[in-house]
């Protein structure tokens, strides 16, 4: 078994543990490469099926290709696809692009709050009807108590401290200093009512591993990751007002792997194109403690 096999087997094991132990489980799908690999691993774990609903937090500022790609795969792979958003903030234009708040505030409102309320069922959930391709209000408003997330330890400081199974309290808060121990592949699957668990099957993967796996498994990804002739591509996907493409000639997965391994990206941080990280002092810790993914 090579290193990718080891990563794959461990992640599949974790997904199956989550599915066997946690009720009201969902998986966050940001449409980016990491959570798409996670989705693919779920298809591996469950032999082509995805018995877990996928949740996307739509800030309404996502690059349009991302939404097209999401719905295309959801129909093709017969996913239970749900999206949620902060409708109040969008209606009242309390966003960074509208000039009302700063970037960090905007992440807090359109991502963290939207996520918290979509998970708890307080906000409306829109579910894709696989027979007509339309989104309808989901009648199920039960809180999700297990949330599978595609974070990787190598992304930035606070993520390197995560457990595979990480408990969050009612307010979604994360107490980094006092996390329960986790060893011998035994995870925290017991928790008191009112709390929920985040599951991180990709914790040990690096950005390079993700691309190597995408290449090996031939996983469909959004075209925004590749240079389409303008010598630019997105390295990390987010909202268009805050995410910028990097200069790159990489036009396909193989080029990207080469670029990461030995090319000009070797020593440049992955989220260098994300403006909100810089506003948070180079660490996402403040946002993550409040429930940001």
């Amino acid at each position: 078994m090579d290193h990718l096999d080891q990563l794959e087997n461990k992640s599949v094991h974790i997904l199956r543990e989550a599915y066997a132990n946690l009720k009201n489980l969902c998986m966050l799908w940001s449409i980016g490469k990491d959570s798409t690999v996670l989705l693919w691993l779920a298809r591996k774990a469950f032999f082509g099926h995805v018995p877990i609903p996928l949740v996307h937090i739509d800030t309404s500022f996502k690059i349009p290709e991302m939404i097209e790609y999401r719905d295309r795969l959801a129909m093709q792979w017969k996913l239970t696809m749900i999206y949620g958003q902060n409708e109040e903030a969008l209606l009242n234009k309390i966003t960074f692009p509208d000039g009302a708040i700063d970037r960090i505030q905007c992440c807090r409102v359109l991502k963290t709050q939207a996520l918290t309320n979509t998970l708890s069922g307080k906000a409306k959930r829109y579910k894709l009807n696989l027979s007509n391709g339309q989104y309808e209000v989901d009648k199920n408003t039960e809180p999700f108590t297990g949330v599978i997330v595609g974070v990787r330890a190598d992304e930035e400081g606070s993520r390197s401290k995560e457990r595979y199974f990480s408990a969050r309290d009612q307010e979604n808060l994360w107490d980094i200093g006092d996390q329960p121990p986790e060893f011998w592949n035994q995870f925290k699957t017991d928790f008191p009512p009112g709390t929920h668990v985040r599951v991180h099957p990709l914790l040990d993967w690096t950005e390079l591993n993700i691309w190597e796996y995408i290449e090996r498994e031939n996983i469909p990804t959004v075209s925004l990751y590749y240079n389409n002739g303008q010598s630019k591509r997105y390295r990390s996907l987010g909202c268009y007002p805050c995410t910028f493409p990097i200069d790159s000639e990489a036009a396909n997965v193989t080029d990207i792997i080469e670029e990461l391994k030995s090319g000009r990206l070797k020593n440049v941080a992955e989220r260098s194109g994300r403006a909100q990280d810089k506003d948070d002092g180079g660490s996402l810790e403040t946002l993550r403690k409040e429930g940001y993914m």
Binding site: D154, K161, I176, G177
Partner: peptide, 19 residues
């Protein structure tokens, strides 16, 4: 010391991973 509360206390609290 990637984490802020570790920086202020000057001790490592949780196992961090370095690549």
């Amino acid at each position: 010391d990637a984490l802020k509360d570790e920086r202020s206390q000057g001790i490592t609290i949780d196992s961090a991973r370095v690549f």
